[in-house]
Design a binder for these strands. Structure first.
Length: 434
RNA sequence: GGAAGCGUGGCCGAGUGGUUGAAGGCGCACGACUCGAAAUCGUGUAGGCAGAAAUGUCUCGGAGGUUCGAAUCCUCUCGCUUCCGCCA
């Protein structure tokens, strides 16, 4: 949620960037309700003051006079009336306020669709093959790695059984990533080679979070919508999480960190669930777009002044990880229409998939400033004693399904085997090929 | 799933209807002492909203109720702990 003070002071700017991000919002109505809300609050506070005064007076005398009791009753009924009106207004106000997206950073390109995202870099050489490269589902079928037919029988479309060496490969990627990001020396070298300054070298804490999340924290994270893309547990106010971000970012709701403990960095592993509403018929082959996929996700809580640096650090980690796996990729600066409602800035990375002859999204880095923290009430107490909202950052370490695709397609051999990137070999018993 | 108990400030913990937004302790900040530190002593220290401020108001898991007045009484609800049941 955006700061109402900011909206009051910059209504035109708020309208403009909301439009740029593609959100229909009623800023004027929010401001009108805000004004009504404040004047009602003032009136209510006044009445309460009277009530409290009265109660204070009465405390001293053992039997209150009939007169004061009557006054008390009058205050009580007036208060009830105003409080009821306030609660109506508050509901509308909050509803509208929640619809206003976060302010994009100045360097976020303005665009109306994701086609206007800007490719800022292409890294790594595209592989060349002496044969016609296959796509991952052809190779997987030949090797018995993916079974979607039986998955469809058991769970429906967009599910798969991953089997055999492909499973070992996923575990290897996971173990490699967890080891890298929990190692301070690795963190230091990433910061150094990215030439970042004033970045904490604190390693990530690995986390296995719950895969379900209650409605309230989900909504506070601003990730419940579009709820058509979420799986709800029937009969409960519970949902299957769509990303570890949802359960990691909300875990410190209503808490106040000590400044000395910042930043808080988590590397969460979670199976994520998405209905993929509105993608009918899209990416039906292979395992690119599934209802369920495993993901390693970075999430951090920082002070306001270090949050942009943290975002850049997360991007640097993503590059490091992709380069360690020797995958060719490109970096996209997401435009206003694509960064997402709670985002101030967003970077995507797309890996080259030779079997399909195109780049596909494997990573995203989201910078939320204090937008999520405001509703989560996640704060920090500064050394000075001041309490402020923290800033959240979230970014993919690896979406395992898609990275398996990338490894398969980029490292395939003519006989449909897959060469293993050097850094993963120790996690596969030294095997150079599967 | 059944039963009982418990949810108070950054943390622990008093408080069962009327200056209690809340004793005390820990922690933290500042100061004194010290060459410096530790120890000790002193002072300060919850958050939200409105306000330039003074100040007012709200919040003792959450929602609702009783009352002139609720952390304190009632109802519902959520969470935690323990015991039983079940179970990887």
């Amino acid at each position: 949620m955006l700061d109402i003070n900011y909206i009051r002071e910059n209504p035109d700017r708020v309208k403009e960037f909301s439009r740029q991000k593609g959100y229909a919002v009623d800023v004027d109505n929010v401001l009108r309700l805000d004004e009504r809300r404040r004047s009602l609050t003032a009136a209510i506070d006044k009445l309460r003051e009277q009530r409290n005064d009265l109660a204070r007076q009465m405390k001293s005398s053992s039997k209150p006079s009939a007169d004061t009791v009557t006054t008390g009753k009058r205050i009580k009924s007036e208060l009830a009336k105003l409080e009821e009106e306030l609660s109506y207004i508050d509901t509308d106000y909050t509803f509208l306020l929640k619809q206003i997206p976060n302010t994009p950073t100045d360097d976020t390109p303005v665009g109306e669709t994701e086609d206007e995202n800007i490719v800022t870099e292409e890294i790594g050489d595209l592989p060349e093959f002496a044969f016609d490269p296959k796509n991952h589902w052809e190779i997987a079928a030949a090797r018995g790695w993916i079974d979607k037919e039986r998955a469809a029988k058991v769970a429906g479309s967009r599910f798969a059984y991953l089997m055999g060496d492909l499973v070992k490969l996923q575990m290897a990627v996971m173990q490699f990533t967890i080891n890298a990001l929990t190692d301070e020396e690795t963190i230091k070298s990433i910061i150094k080679s990215a030439k970042l300054t004033n970045i904490s070298t604190k390693p990530f804490t690995p986390v296995l979070p719950p895969f379900m999340i209650k409605t309230d924290p989900y909504d506070a994270m601003d990730r419940l919508q579009p709820s058509e893309d979420r799986y709800k547990i029937e009969g409960d106010e519970l949902w299957l999480q769509g990303s570890a971000e949802h359960v990691l970012g909300s875990m410190h709701a209503d808490e106040i960190f000590a400044e000395a403990d910042m930043p808080i960095r988590y590397l969460g592993y979670a199976t994520s669930f998405r209905k993929e509403a509105g993608t009918y018929g899209k990416d039906m082959e292979g395992i690119l777009r599934m209802h369920q996929f495993d993901k390693l996700e970075m999430e951090s809580f920082t002070t306001a002044e270090s949050s942009l640096g943290e975002h850049l650090f997360f991007v640097a980690i993503q590059r490091y990880l992709l380069e360690q796996l020797e995958l060719p990729y490109r970096v996209l600066m997401k435009c206003t229409a694509d960064i997402g409602k709670p985002n101030a800035r967003g970077i995507d990375m797309e890996v080259w998939l030779p079997g399909q002859g195109k780049y596909r999204e494997t990573h995203t880095a989201d910078y939320m400033t204090d937008y999520q923290a405001r509703r989560l009430k996640t704060r920090v107490r500064r050394a000075s004693g001041a309490v402020e909202l923290i800033h959240t950052n979230d970014a993919t370490a690896f979406a395992l399904g898609r990275i398996l695709i990338a490894i398969i397609e980029n490292n395939q051999t003519a006989d449909m085997r897959v060469n293993i990137p050097a850094v993963l070999q120790p996690y596969l018993g030294g095997k150079t090929q599967i």
